[in-house]
């Protein structure tokens, strides 16, 4: 089991990976990626029971589905640094002929990816399907998925949320990245989400709140609580309060860096705030 210090080192390295990936191709989504870095590190390094070798069927292991595929930079970095593919391959992010497409896909055969995502609102449905198959296969492992908060504006989510409660999908932990931002501004200004906790509860879900979504220990505590609640007939929703752009002061608390890459100077500034730990790719 890695120590908190080791996990924190990885978090900083992943931040560097995110920034360098999007800077190199002058495109991609750093804001949400930075905000979810601690979550991904906790998930892949400690929370999930996963096999070393990737196979699509993922029998006998926990599975993760990223619904808000635009935060691919954090996903790719953590997958690479968790052993799914060479870290150097992060150099190919968004380039022609790369397995690291702008949004994650199975199409180019990148290990660690089990479904394409990018067009929003589809991840919970896919995760429910995988959870149903786990049950049919008598496989007691869990299904995790992550969605953006703005993404909850897509109607398909609410079909899925209704299904999961009505059908006792209790081997599923859906995490909502509550950073309050989306492309056009704050979720409050674009289309208010209302009380997300009450909405999930009204649909019949068990809700766990992680107030400090950029603090590893809080994430680990909250997610372990969520895990304990599985197997009791209800799907679990984790409300993860994060700060968009976390770890880079000029990117924090704004939607401005949702889908914009830093220039050379900004990159230098951002990297200086996150000094190299495990080594750049």
């Amino acid at each position: 089991m890695p120590t908190i210090k080791e996990l924190n080192d990885l978090v900083i390295q992943v931040r560097r990976d995110i920034l360098r990936q999007v800077h190199k191709v002058n495109s991609g989504h750093p804001g949400g990626s930075l905000g979810c870095t601690e979550f991904f590190v906790a998930l892949y390094q400690e929370l999930m029971d996963r096999k070393k070798e990737f196979d699509m069927d993922g029998k006998g292991e926990d599975l993760f589905f990223l619904s808000n595929g635009h935060i691919s930079p954090v996903f790719y970095s953590v997958l690479a640094r968790s052993g799914y593919f060479p870290v150097e391959e992060l150099n190919t992010f968004r380039l022609l002929d790369s397995r690291l497409q702008g949004h994650p896909t199975t199409h180019e055969g990148l290990p660690g990816i089990r479904v394409a995502s990018g067009s929003l609102g589809q991840g919970i449905s896919v995760a429910i399907g995988a959870a149903e198959t786990k049950k049919l296969n008598k496989d007691s492992h869990l299904i995790y998925t992550l969605c953006g908060d703005g993404e909850l504006q897509e109607g398909q989510n609410w079909e899925a949320i209704m299904y999961a409660a009505g059908n006792n999908i209790d081997n599923l932990i859906v995490t909502i990245d509550l950073n309050g931002q989306q492309i056009d501004g704050s979720t409050q200004n674009v289309l208010p989400l209302g009380n997300v906790k009450e909405k999930f509860e009204a649909f019949g879900w068990e809700v766990v709140i992680i107030n400090k979504g950029n603090d590893l220990e809080s994430i680990l505590d909250g997610m372990k609580t969520a895990k304990k609640k599985t197997g009791n007939g209800k799907p679990i929703c984790v409300l993860l309060h994060t700060v968009m752009g976390h770890g880079v002061d000029f990117m924090m608390h704004t939607h401005a860096w949702h889908g914009k890459a830093p220039n050379d100077e900004q990159l230098e500034n951002a990297l200086a705030q996150n000094p190299e730990t495990l080594g750049d790719y």
């Binding site: 699509m56 069927d57 993922g58 029998k59 599975l63 589905f65 089990r114 479904v115 609102g121 589809q122 991840g123 919970i124 449905s125 896919v126 995760a127 429910i128 399907g129 995988a130 959870a131 149903e132 198959t133 786990k134 049919l136 296969n137 496989d139 109607g155 398909q156 079909e159 899925a160 209704m162 299904y163």
Partner: peptide, 16 residues
């Protein structure tokens, strides 16, 4: 809820 059905079907393939 056809959209959910299609997504679920995709997910169900994972595991055979």
């Amino acid at each position: 809820a056809e959209a959910n059905m299609m997504g679920m079907a995709a997910g169900m393939t994972i595991g055979g």
